[in-house]
């Protein structure tokens, strides 16, 4: 049914109803305008849910660089627009006050984190990688050849003191660089939560 002010007043039969309910304007226009206020002018950008391995499509409604609304992507054939409670709550991560604003540093023995710059964080990490790599380097080790039983010295090129826990929660490209970085600096000790 088409809802117009005239029709509504006819239905109610009394202009008092309009006054009592606070109405006195075009309902259809109001509904449309209310919707427009939130989503009009938004750019819709698809993304992917960050929780279980479903790969459900998200649709982010962005206006002036800000996230206005997040829902399921109806064009993604996996979820066809539906989302579970966790995925539907993902908008709350975008501007969460709980998210740290910058890198943090905790000194040995300290009971607090202090803010540091990215520059300082990268500098400390790179120097530590070099330091531990250099002091724990194993270039060769003696093995018993499994086929011949003979003792042999073989090249192994391992940084024994460095380990890495990668992630099933970052993108493929990041996950790949985790693997590549670990092996280039010399650590085969690279694991992640797929194991658990």
């Amino acid at each position: 049914m088409k809802f117009t002010r005239r029709g509504f007043l006819k239905l109610s039969g009394l202009s008092v109803a309009a006054v009592a309910s606070g109405l006195g304007f075009d309902l259809e226009a109001t509904a449309a305008h209310g919707h427009a206020l939130k989503l009009a002018g938004c750019t819709k950008i698809p993304s992917i849910c960050h929780f279980c391995s479903g790969g459900c499509g998200l649709l982010l409604h962005i206006k002036d660089g800000k996230l206005v609304h997040l829902d399921g992507n109806p064009d993604n054939p996996i979820n066809e627009g539906t989302l579970c409670p966790k995925a539907a709550s993902l908008a709350q991560v975008a501007y969460s006050p709980e998210r740290p604003k910058n890198p943090l540093y905790r000194a040995p023995g300290s009971d607090e984190f202090v803010d540091i710059t990215w520059e300082e964080a990268y500098d400390r990490i790179a120097k530590k990688i070099k330091e531990v790599r250099d002091k724990t380097w194993t270039s060769t080790e003696e093995i018993t050849n499994a086929k011949t039983g003979a003792k042999e010295t073989v090249t192994v090129n391992r940084a024994e003191g460095i380990c890495m826990i990668g992630s099933a929660e970052v993108d493929n490209e990041e996950s790949y660089l985790l693997s590549k970085l670990a092996r280039l600096i010399g650590t085969p000790f690279h694991e992640h939560q797929a194991r658990i």
Partner: peptide, 20 residues
């Protein structure tokens, strides 16, 4: 039914000690 959003990918990318 794997547990994390990219656990298939991170396994493909060998974030594990016995694979490349």
């Amino acid at each position: 039914l794997r547990g994390e959003p990219n656990v298939q990918g991170s396994t493909d990318m060998a974030n594990l000690n016995a694979n490349l």
